[in-house]
Write a protein that binds this DNA or RNA. Structure first.
Lengths: 249, 249
DNA sequence: CCTTCATTTGCAACTTTTTGCAACTTTAAT
DNA sequence: ATTAAAGTTGCAAAAAGTTGCAAATGAAGG
């Protein structure tokens, strides 16, 4: 088993179970514990998992309780959320992906707003339900516990039935050539369906995500209607995106 | 079980019950009392809980909680939940309705249990997701905010695709002639579909609901396999149900 | 096909962390 | 005050991690 192969397997197993143990991985992959440890070390350096004594935990596992979400990026997300909410008007149908930026938006939604939100993100769902005037539609399917979103064929086909006004994507990576990219196949498929099901697509990204890319393409740049970051729209980093025809807020 | 995992589990259990006892945690996690004590010590040092003789309390404990459900019926629900959990075995597919008795069951699920739960109840969903070994499938559709369950044609058709081993119904009214009845048309349709989609149907009802009825029938008595109340199965109130061929627990 | 070179892997010796046990002390409840 | 349950402390065994090193592997070029 090749190194890349092993590491992909580790991440996949983490995705399924939220944790992996050293000894289990040895048995699975037929390598020594030392090698597994080295793989885990590399992956933790790359920020893909949290190494603990005896194994590793998924990032999401930690997020739930142990990590006080980085205050610095938190304030950026608040800024982004405020701008994003300005796009939503009464009686709209809105599709939202998962991700912490989307959650921030869900928290800020003004109580007067009357709209219908459609999502497979469980944390977002909980916030929408608490809102007095928002209708909620859940995209049902198997729940991926690490990312706490529903994934699968049924979720996909349900999204394809939707005709939404807006689609908000929490974005992992955005780049001029490659558009929006992500690293989880299931998430990519869902986001792609969301974009296709919406009249307008809004990309929410903190500035660190700009000009970076991951392995799998969600959509090309020209399919995005709005790009929202915490920066001033006149910031020179954003000008290439403006020139590409995107409304930058 | 990894250390971080154990500690996360302890905090999770505290969230549910506001207290944990040493011995219970030992049994849950399969470690010695010393280890549990050390975990509690670390968590208390980190300010995540309050350690007391014999266990620990959640930080929120000092806020006196006036639960909407009175303490009296709460303890009945705990009893029912404990009996109900005895019916669930590893690798089963379990359908659950909404309702507070079902929620109590979700809170008590033993951490070792490996099963797949299918539900449209949002509060139940949140509890299942927090469980370490349970797979969750969400029945998606429009959310009824009052009852916090998904309702609609799509939810119905999804349930009809399921082949579950067990179906747990939180019950509003049960009666010898009319079987299980309810007063909300959408809920009745969902429960009916759930019964049809499961090999066995389990009816959870506090004793006040016995021998009462509502306007709409979910199913006849003979379609119920198990009836669980907080009473002793030999209680004379329950004998007519035993005679009707139901296993009363 | 072979050689070379960098990388990867497993092993061995050693350190650290984790865990359960035993002896003893403290707590709380009758 | 008595007693059983819980807590503490010290300790030793087991598990996991670390480091250095040599063998194995794989890619690149001849």
């Amino acid at each position: 088993m090749l190194k890349k192969e092993r590491q992909a397997y580790i991440l996949h197993k983490l995705d399924l179970h939220n944790k992996v143990v050293n000894t289990g991985l040895c048995a699975d992959m037929g390598v020594s514990e030392d090698t597994v440890r080295r793989d885990l070390y590399e992956l933790s350096q790359a920020g893909k998992l949290i190494k603990v004594h005896g194994g590793a935990l998924s990032l999401a596992f930690n997020e739930v309780r142990f990590e006080s979400t980085n205050v610095y990026s938190q304030s950026k997300k608040v800024k982004i959320a405020e701008k994003a909410i300005g796009l939503i008007h009464n009686n709209m149908y809105v599709l939202t992906s998962g991700g912490t930026t989307i959650l921030e938006m869900a928290k800020q939604l003004p109580p007067q707003l009357r709209a219908t939100f459609i999502t497979g993100s469980i944390p977002a769902l909980n916030l929408y339900i608490a809102h007095p005037n928002i209708n909620v539609i859940v995209v049902g399917d198997k729940v991926n516990k690490a990312s706490r979103i529903t994934v699968g064929a049924s979720a996909l086909s349900k999204i394809r039935e939707v005709n939404a006004d807006l689609c908000f994507l929490g974005t992992n990576a955005i780049d001029l050539q490659r558009g929006i990219t992500d690293n989880d196949w299931e998430v990519v498929e869902l986001k792609r369906a969301m974009v296709a099901a919406s009249a307008k697509t809004v990309c929410l990204a903190i500035s660190e995500k700009l000009n970076s890319f991951e392995a799998l393409q969600v959509c090309a740049l020209k399919q995005i209607d709005y790009l929202i970051t915490e920066l001033d729209p006149n910031d020179k980093v954003l000008q290439p995106y403006v020139e590409a025809g995107i409304t930058v807020l």
